[in-house]
Design a protein around this nucleic acid. Sequence first.
DNA 1: TCAAGATGGTACCGATCGGTTCCGTTTACC
DNA 2: GGTAAACGGAACCGATCGGTACCATCTTGA
Lengths: 210, 210
Amino acid sequence: MCLMAVQARERLLTTAEDLFYAEGIRAVGVERILSESGVGRASFYRHFASKDELVVAVLSGRDRRWREWLRTAVDGYGLPPADRPLAVFDALSERFARDDFRGCAFINTMIEAADRDSAAHQVAAEHKSSVTGYLDTLLADAGRADHAELAPELMLLVDGAIVTALREGNPDSAVRARRIAEALLARQPDPGDAREAVRRRLRVVTGGMR
Amino acid sequence: MCLMAVQARERLLTTAEDLFYAEGIRAVGVERILSESGVGRASFYRHFASKDELVVAVLSGRDRRWREWLRTAVDGYGLPPADRPLAVFDALSERFARDDFRGCAFINTMIEAADRDSAAHQVAAEHKSSVTGYLDTLLADAGRADHAELAPELMLLVDGAIVTALREGNPDSAVRARRIAEALLARQPDPGDAREAVRRRLRVVTGGMR
DNA sequence: TCAAGATGGTACCGATCGGTTCCGTTTACC
DNA sequence: GGTAAACGGAACCGATCGGTACCATCTTGA
């Protein structure tokens, strides 16, 4: 097995990922990718049938590595299961602080590729579903009976934090989202009347888990 | 004063706004705008020096009308000041349900126009600041002493709800964000240790406002 | 009625888009 | 060393990009 093919393909993928993320998929032409990667035009179309196919390959790889990064980061804090859902926002804070941070590549793709039926749009949508699923397992492992309800709510906070970080140009929104999540997790499901809700909270805080 | 000029300019603005919002700024060429508006090519460049200038004009108009819409919608519920901050999410829910909903034109613009120095990007960023300011006044009028802290938090929820609605293709995220906001507004600032925090919550729920 | 101005249509400009084809060179494997 | 595959470079394709110039037509205000 020769190495050249892999080298060219890999260079195309990494160069394209960097350029797409930094400037947008539509803003980066094939010519840019070729010149910055040093790959010939013919070689490009030997590996990918079209630019769209390259886009899908880039997004699929990024999806895999992004979720692996999040899992590793959350595990790396060495926290008990009950504290792991909130640790997601600590991990995000590190991401937001990178100087090449430009938001979420998948949100950006869903916005740029307006057509919901396009392959790129669907890969991006599936990424978000996968991350929501990961949040769900984190919450379930934390002993939250309402994990199915909380997971999409945390996901909303994650996406809100990402968009806000892109907008403000600093990682402050990560700790902001974390504080909101703390208030959210302190809430009890279906509280009934207010006085009963307070009794529930008291029970949890004084004697419960954590 | 003749009317033709105004007509052509207005047609360009409305046509461009619809197309930009539906398909993206970069995805819509000048040719599309001309053919769908029925305006001649020369007339276009008599009114706007460039496509970028049209983009800025479109965004400025949309900013004005969007904020006016939100204010009118919130006022229209006829709620007491204390309930108005949450009413923002009810208004959003109506927007999300429209079949032509395609997210926030300003978030989309900030993502599409990656260059932070571009005029379009700055108009979009200013829009978000203005909306945050509106949330701040809503919270202050609701008697929240911590309005300065809460306003960016609600804004994060608003943006999170918008992106989520775009992603999921339904308005569910509006009520989800509203529930999170309720938990957030139920939180007390700087809770100290847990037991003290519970005492504060008890005090508020049993005898406090709302 | 008549001049001034705004209009829509079209031909045209250089640049770039995504994509195809061919060619000479380099690499890998036997 | 020889063969086959993968490579980089470049010429070329039709289409479209944003933008300019010219023209005949229609509306407006005096």
